[in-house]
Each structure stands twice: as C-alpha cells, then as structure tokens.
C-alpha cells in the first residue's frame, strides 16, 4: 500500500471523460484518505493491445491499466505482456467484491485481470430520423437494401466475431451476413462510438450503446437485436506498467468500491447485476420479443473469434465504405 501511495498516479489506456476522472479521483481520496492522479489516454482496447505487446517486447514501459476483451487478453498473455495475480489473496480482504470480479469466464485467463464491465452490442439509432418501431430488430433486417448507406459499422471487425459463441452461427454464416451488409455500403468508422449516428449522418450504428451521450441530450437511443452480442471487458494491469504497485490496487478498487462512481457517469455496467442499466433495458425489451444474449462459454472459440475479427477488419478495409 505504501509503495502504491508513493507512486501516486495511474495511467489508464481507456477513454474516460474528464468528469469520470475527476469523480474517481474524489472517490479515491474519500476511500483511501490520500490522493491519486488519474490520466486517461483514449486508446481503443485493440490499439492498446498492439502497442502494449510491441512496447513490452522492446522493453519499454507502458500505461498501467487497459480493458481488453477476452480475445485481446489472450493475446497479451501469449505475448507475456501481463502477469497473473492472486487477486483474492491480495485484495479480497479490503474489497470483498474482488472474488466475484476475479471470475473472468475462463480458467485460462484467471488471475490476469478482473471483470470490469460488459459491452452489449446494440443498434443505436438517431431519434430524429427513426422511431423505435422503425428500427430493425434483427441482423437480417439490417441487410434490407432500404438501409443502404444508412448504417455505420465498426471497421475493426467488431462485433460479428462474437457471433461465433452462438450455436446458431458459424464462420460461413457470419461471413455471409457481413458480405450482405457490405452490399448496403455501410459507413465504416474505425470505432464503435456513435458520432455518425449522433450527427444524423446515418440512421443506425452497430456498436455499444453510448448512454453517456444520451444523458447529454444526444438524439440517439438503442435497441437490442435478436442476437445481442456480449463482450466482457477485463480490467488488466500491464506487466511493464509505469506504476506497478498502484495499478493492481487501482484495478481492484475500480471494479469494486470505485465501480458505482464509474458506472454512474460512464453508464456502463455488468449484465450479471440486475440493477444495471443494461439488465433493466434488456428486461424491458425482452418483454415484447425474443432476444438471445450470446455469452462466451467455450475458451477454444475465444482465439477463433479474435482471428475472425481481424479477418473481417481486413475485409472492411478492402471493401471500403460508402463514406
């Protein structure tokens, strides 16, 4: 603890708003009685993973904490860029919630990080352009030519790779869906955040729902499609972290005592928590129609889904977009 206190700062390679950073710093001061400085470096999990692996191999320091998906965490482990810890033994006494958070779905990933929050891929739509009734509710409906040029899809290949975790989909059917969507000439931003849909450049964006934007008054809302794809993010301290003592302590804190503060501003939660906004919204929408949440259960599929994501990302690069 003293070593962590002496370090006094933590650099997260996650995109957090200033409001989030300030609120977390205040909450930390309240919880620990000493201050920390949090620096948020807005990197996507995929870019952060590539950079951490290259920098670690070159013997360079990197940021303190990331939030990789299971597939990206597997890459970090294979590259020896992260270390396993006994989270419960180290921090379970102070933060009882660590025990639950240390369940990161697969034994092979255990110890490398803590379950942070869940991305549920939704169809975000512009409320000035569409009513909820008009929004497609299935992936198949999204391939309707009437949406030509009116959809934005993450050029990095997300989230189609997560369909592999559903018994109803295989690589061939996923690729077929992607190709039919490509015929609709989607806009291909290199991220899932919904700038295009907020501006009204497209009516629908496939990605995580940005509820912080909704809270700011942006004209968007989200619906869960028939197969709602699920991506648990893992708070992971890096092996070559700049602040090796504070980073695991911070990870343990942010997924437990610090989490309510984080969730209240970023509007991100865990599906396992029935009070989370995701769980409540899912319950509301499930009342009228069938929604299957595609969770991850087979570790062998994790590596496959990450490989498929890269392949779909390459496909989007070669296809180009409709702007």
């Amino acid at each position: 603890m003293e070593a962590a206190r002496a370090e006094g700062e933590v650099e997260v390679w996650i995109n957090w708003s200033e409001e989030t950073v300030n609120a977390l710093q205040d909450k930390w001061q309240e919880d620990f009685g000493w201050p920390i400085k949090i620096t948020s470096v807005p990197k996507s999990a995929s870019a952060a993973t590539a950079e951490v692996i290259a920098a670690t191999e070159a013997g360079q320091e990197v940021g303190d904490l990331g939030q990789p998906s299971t597939g990206l965490l597997l890459q970090l482990i294979e590259a020896d860029a992260v270390e396993a810890r006994d989270w419960v033994g180290l921090y379970g006494g102070r933060f009882p919630g660590v025990e639950e958070a240390s369940n990161v779905y697969f034994d092979e990933l255990a110890g490398y990080g803590l379950h942070f929050w869940d991305v549920l891929y939704e169809f975000t739509y512009n409320t000035n352009l569409l009513s909820e009734a008009e929004v497609p509710k299935t992936w198949e409906e999204l391939t309707d030519p009437k949406w030509k040029g009116n959809i934005a899809i993450d050029a990095r290949g997300y989230p189609f790779n997560f369909m592999l975790h559903s018994p109803d989909w295989d690589e061939a059917s996923i690729r077929d869906l992607v190709e039919r969507l490509a015929a609709n000439e989607p806009v291909l931003p290199g991220r899932s955040r919904g700038d295009e849909v907020i501006a009204g450049e497209v009516a629908i964006q496939v990605g995580g729902c940005n509820r912080d934007d909704i809270a700011r008054g942006a004209p968007i809302d989200c619906i869960y499609p028939d197969y709602t794809l699920f991506n648990p993010l893992i708070a992971t301290p890096f092996k070559n972290a700049k602040h090796p003592n504070l980073s695991p302590l911070f990870a343990a804190w942010i997924v437990t005592d610090g989490f309510p503060t984080y969730a209240s501003i970023q509007f991100n939660g865990r599906l396992s928590n029935p009070d989370s906004i995701e769980a409540q919204e899912l319950a509301r929408q499930s009342a009228d129609r069938d929604i299957t949440v595609v969770e991850q259960s087979d570790f062998a599929v994790v590596a496959e889904d990450e490989a498929l994501r890269r392949s779909i990302g390459e496909f989007w690069t070669q296809t180009g977009g409709g702007g």
Partner: peptide, 10 residues
C-alpha cells in the same frame, strides 16, 4: 504501425 485489427507488423 498502429493496427486496430492485429499486431504491429514492422
């Protein structure tokens, strides 16, 4: 050098 869908390939 800044890949979003893979590792850095120098």
């Amino acid at each position: 050098t800044q890949p979003e869908f893979g590792l850095i390939n120098y």
